[in-house]
Each structure stands twice: as structure tokens, then as C-alpha cells.
């Protein structure tokens, strides 16, 4: 859950400025891993932007999410280098292990979110995944399952 006080703090740290809406949404997104719908409405009212417009902004950028994301955000690279070094079997292994589909990106227990990205800029380590911004290179389907299991134990 988010708190109104925290949201107010974020908004005022950007000087209650309409034109800072993207920066504000960034902060909200990184604090809660997603932007709750009613929170977005609150922010838009506060900044005197219509909720309709705010919705347009949030859905335009891939980084913003209106759905809650998991504690671990796994980004799997499917750029050219990773793709030719067989990123697809890794993606399939992750999906199978986490019981996710193309439409369903986050596990029911809100532990993991799986996203495909186009390039992580670490082609030398292909195929690459990141988990909460930590980079894991030269992945294999077996290795990635091990990694998942160790994360599950951590909790």
C-alpha cells in the first residue's frame, strides 16, 4: 500500500510542478514497484492534469506499470546478440518455472516479474539477464533455474 504522505512528499520534492510528472511517476514507480490506479488519479488531481492525460503518459512508457510488480524483477534480453546465443530457451525455462505466460508477467505471490527487453548493453556476456538491476551473464536454462531456487530460499 502507498501512503498519501509519501506521495505528497514526492510531489513537493519536484516543486508541485506539472511538467515534472514523469519524474514524479518515476519516483513513485521505484518506491512501490508500480503506480496504483487511485494513486495516479491523486497525483493528476494534485498537479491539475486530467487523469485521462496521466493515463496516456503512464501507458506510453514501458517502464511504468499500473499492475503490481514482483519483489524480483527479471529482465531477459532478447536483443540480436542474446537472441542468436539462445535466449529463447532461457525465457521458456523461466516462464515454465514461474508459471507465467505472455499476458501474465508477475507471479501470484508477487515474488517475480518477468520482462523481455531489447538490449541490456552487455552483449559480450550474452545471453544476459538482470535481476533487480544485477547482471547475470552467460546464462543457460539450467543455471537460471538454479538462480531462481536460490532467490526463493532467500525469502
Amino acid at each position: 500500500m502507498y501512503s498519501i504522505n509519501e506521495i505528497d512528499e514526492i510531489i513537493s520534492s519536484h516543486g508541485n510542478d506539472q511538467s515534472s510528472i514523469i519524474a514524479i511517476l518515476h519516483d513513485v514507480q521505484s518506491k512501490y514497484n508500480y503506480i496504483p490506479e487511485d494513486c495516479l488519479e491523486y497525483i493528476s488531481n494534485k498537479l491539475d492534469i486530467s487523469p485521462t492525460k496521466a493515463f496516456g503518459i503512464v501507458t506510453f512508457y514501458e517502464n511504468f506499470s499500473l499492475e503490481p510488480k514482483g519483489r524480483y524483477i527479471i529482465k531477459i534480453c532478447d536483443g540480436t546478440a542474446c537472441h542468436v546465443r539462445k535466449s529463447t530457451p532461457i525465457l521458456e525455462a523461466l516462464k515454465k518455472e514461474l508459471k507465467l505466460t505472455d499476458g501474465k508477467k508477475t507471479t501470484d505471490d508477487l515474488m517475480f516479474t518477468l520482462e523481455t527487453v531489447s538490449c541490456l548493453g552487455a552483449c559480450g556476456l550474452a545471453p544476459v539477464i538482470t535481476i533487480n538491476d544485477k547482471v547475470y551473464g552467460k546464462m543457460t536454462p539450467e543455471h537460471v533455474v538454479e538462480l531462481l531456487n536460490s532467490l526463493k530460499e532467500e525469502k
Binding site: S50, P51, T52, K53, F55, G56, T59, L66
Partner: peptide, 25 residues
């Protein structure tokens, strides 16, 4: 809706091939 009527009930949402016109949320 936005410029003449000042209502803003509709917007462009999402992008690329997924772009559509919709009310908020």
C-alpha cells in the same frame, strides 16, 4: 474533447501497434 470542450474524457493510450483511444484506465 480536450481543446474545445475542456473535458478530456478521451486520450491516446499505449503506443506503437498497441496504441488506442480510450477513457482513463
Amino acid at each position: 474533447c480536450e481543446e474545445v470542450q475542456g473535458v478530456g474524457a478521451l486520450t491516446f493510450a499505449y503506443r506503437g501497434s498497441k496504441m488506442k483511444i480510450t477513457p482513463a484506465f
